[in-house]
Design a protein around this nucleic acid. Structure first.
Lengths: 110, 110
DNA sequence: TTGACATACTACGACAGACGTGGTATTATA
DNA sequence: TATAATACCACGTCTGTCGTAGTATGTCAA
């Protein structure tokens, strides 16, 4: 059963995808999302950072402090629970796609 | 450019899809959504009716009263603006799918 | 050296869609 | 006689997203 929140909250999934490939931090994640989406999606800073806070609160990522070129950074690492959650989301996405597709008329150009 | 609201608001699109096939009313739309989604999505009553109100306010559907078996019904008809909006949403969906897919690792069972 | 731009965030509040709860009223069926 | 199905509506809450704004350091060109 699809809940509407599946539709809404894919920011978390995008972030977790990036972190599944290695530890990262806010600013980097932001740039990678833009790149991976080929410029089609740019996550707002506030959206990103509040998502990171939420993900940590839920135990899906864990933070640690770092320093780079004299600048402070907060790095995040995906947890086991985070990986499990990400995998769930991937399955849900496949179902969501199928469902929404049933309500979409694809315009064929000719 | 994809905005997050594209991800969120697909209830409207589902409703408009149904109405693109003919006038309908709340209760009927509800049942059709369940059927078309093969039971994978059941829209909550409040979500549905507030969506109908919003769609009418935005000029995407127009209502008229009807009577059936002694029961009152409010029928809705999709407008030209509604059809245009629906078509836009369909295009956006195709892009959205591509973007999100880039963040999804499909588990292949073997 | 000054000013713009990139880096790396944080605080605060507003908004809107989804949803929970509960209510109204009629008709069908068991 | 009561339970389910039909056909809604009001009201308030929650939460993710976003707008605005601010802090602070490093880089590089004019």
């Amino acid at each position: 059963m699809i809940s509407s929140d599946i539709i809404r909250g894919y920011t978390d999934t995008m972030i977790l995808f990036i972190m599944s490939r290695g530890d990262s931090y806010g600013y980097e994640i932001s740039k990678q999302i833009k790149e991976i989406s080929e410029g089609n999606y740019v996550m707002k800073e506030t959206t990103l950072y509040s998502a990171l806070t939420r993900l940590e609160k839920n135990g899906f990522i864990a933070s640690y402090s770092g320093l780079h070129d004299g600048r402070k950074r907060t790095y995040y690492k995906i947890t086991e629970a985070g990986t499990a959650y990400y995998n769930e989301k991937c399955s849900e996405w496949e179902l969501t796609k199928k469902v929404i597709d049933n309500f979409i008329e694809t315009q064929q150009e000719e």
